[in-house]
C-alpha cells in the first residue's frame, strides 16, 4: 500500500487531502476481480444471497477505494441492486462479512448503517410525496433532539437545531437548483427533480460514502449533465461515491474505477477504459442480449429481486424443456 494514501485521514471526508492521490493510487492496481485497494472505505468478503435456491449474489471479495467514484455495472439480472441492498443492510446476506471504515456491519440495521455514514438512494426514487421538499430535507438531518417523543412537544427545545438544519437544507437545495420548490410537495416534482431531491436529502445525513442506485434512470437528458456534475462535486468535497448505472456514457465520464457483475459475481474490475475493452465484460453483456428488451421496462417496474426471479423462471422453463 502506498504510504501517501495510507496517511489520508480516515473518517473525516471534508479534509481528505486529495482526490488525485486516492484516484492515482488506483492506477497502480492489478485489474483483476476482487483486487485489494490501498485505502478501502468499504470491504465485502464472501457475501452471498440466494432466493429460493437461486444464487442472486455470490461476491468473493469487493473493496471500494476511499475518495473515489466507483461504478458498479453489469447486465440485467446481475444482482447489482441485491448487492447494494446487502451492503446497506436493507437485505440480509446468507453469509459473508462487510466492514465500513474498518467496523464490522454484521447484524447492523439499515438505519444504523446510514448513521455510520453510508447512505444510499433507490432505483425507484423514494421521495416522501406528502411532505414538502424542505421537510424531506430536514428529515435527513442526523441527531435531532426533537425527534424524541418527550422533547417533540416543546418547540423551544429543538427550535435552534431546526434553524441550523433548515439553513443547511436551503444551501443544499440551492446547490441542486431546487430552492424555488422548497414549499412544494415532493410528490409534485418531476422524475429528474426527485432524483436530485433524493441525492440532496442523502447529503443531509452527512455521509462519507454515498451509494446511488441508478441515478440516471428516468432522468430527462437536459438534467443529466448537471447530475453528473453533482456526483463529481461529491467526490471533490471528499466523499466516496459508489453507484449502479446502466448509462455507459455516464460510467465512462465520471467513474474512477469500474466493477462489473454478472450472474451474481464480480467478473472484472479496473479503470473504465480497460474494463470496457475487457473480453469477459463484452461477453457478459452480449450473452445477456435477450435482457436488453426488458431493460427499459425494468427501470420503471421491476423491483430488485426480479433479477433472481427471471432466472428462476428460466430455470423452470429449462427444466421443462429438457
Amino acid at each position: 500500500m502506498p504510504a501517501d494514501v495510507h496517511n489520508s485521514p480516515a473518517g473525516s471526508p471534508a479534509d481528505s487531502p486529495g482526490v488525485p492521490a486516492a484516484v492515482a493510487a488506483l492506477a497502480a492496481l492489478e485489474t483483476e476481480p476482487g483486487v485489494a485497494k490501498p485505502d478501502p472505505i468499504l470491504v465485502a468478503d464472501k457475501v452471498s444471497r440466494t432466493f429460493g435456491g437461486l444464487v442472486a449474489v455470490d461476491v468473493d471479495h469487493f473493496e471500494v477505494q476511499r475518495g473515489t467514484i466507483t461504478a458498479l455495472i453489469g447486465p440485467n439480472g446481475a444482482g447489482k441492486t441485491t448487492f447494494f441492498n446487502l451492503l446497506t443492510g436493507f437485505d440480509r446476506a446468507d453469509s459473508g462479512t462487510r466492514t465500513f471504515n474498518g467496523r464490522s456491519l454484521k447484524r447492523i440495521s439499515a438505519a444504523k448503517v446510514a448513521r455510520m455514514g453510508m447512505v444510499r438512494t433507490f432505483q425507484l426514487t423514494k421521495v416522501l410525496s406528502k411532505l414538502t421538499v424542505l421537510e424531506n430535507m430536514r428529515l435527513g438531518a442526523p441527531k435531532q433532539s426533537g425527534e424524541r417523543f418527550w422533547v417533540g412537544p416543546f418547540r423551544f427545545l429543538w427550535d435552534g437545531q431546526e434553524k441550523e438544519n433548515t439553513e443547511r437544507a436551503r444551501e443544499l437545495l440551492a446547490r441542486f437548483k431546487l430552492d424555488a420548490k422548497e414549499s412544494d410537495f415532493a410528490g409534485e416534482l418531476s422524475g429528474g427533480q426527485r432524483k436530485l431531491l433524493e441525492m440532496a436529502r442523502s447529503l443531509m445525513v452527512e455521509p462519507e460514502l454515498v451509494m446511488l442506485d441508478e441515478p440516471m434512470a428516468g432522468v430527462n437528458p437536459a438534467l443529466k449533465q448537471s447530475l453528473l456534475d453533482h456526483v463529481r462535486s461529491l467526490r471533490d468535497e471528499g466523499r466516496t461515491v459508489l453507484f449502479v448505472e446502466h448509462d455507459m456514457d455516464m460510467v465512462r465520464d465520471i467513474s474512477d474505477w469500474v466493477v462489473v457483475m454478472a450472474q451474481g459475481r464480480i467478473i472484472a474490475e479496473g479503470p473504465p477504459d480497460t474494463v470496457m475493452a475487457d473480453r469477459r465484460v463484452i461477453d457478459a453483456y452480449l450473452g445477456a442480449h435477450h435482457d436488453t428488451d426488458i431493460t427499459e421496462l425494468d427501470e420503471e417496474t421491476i423491483a430488485s429481486e426480479a433479477e433472481a426471479e427471471i432466472a428462476a423462471e428460466r430455470l423452470d422453463e429449462g427444466r421443462e424443456q429438457a
Binding site: 421496462l297 417496474t301 421491476i302 423491483a303 426480479a306 426471479e309 428462476a312 423462471e313
Partner: peptide, 13 residues
C-alpha cells in the same frame, strides 16, 4: 404462480 412471484414480470412475458 408467475403472477404471484412477480406481476410486472409476468405481464412483460
Amino acid at each position: 404462480r408467475a403472477v404471484s412471484d412477480n406481476p410486472a414480470l409476468a405481464a412483460s412475458t
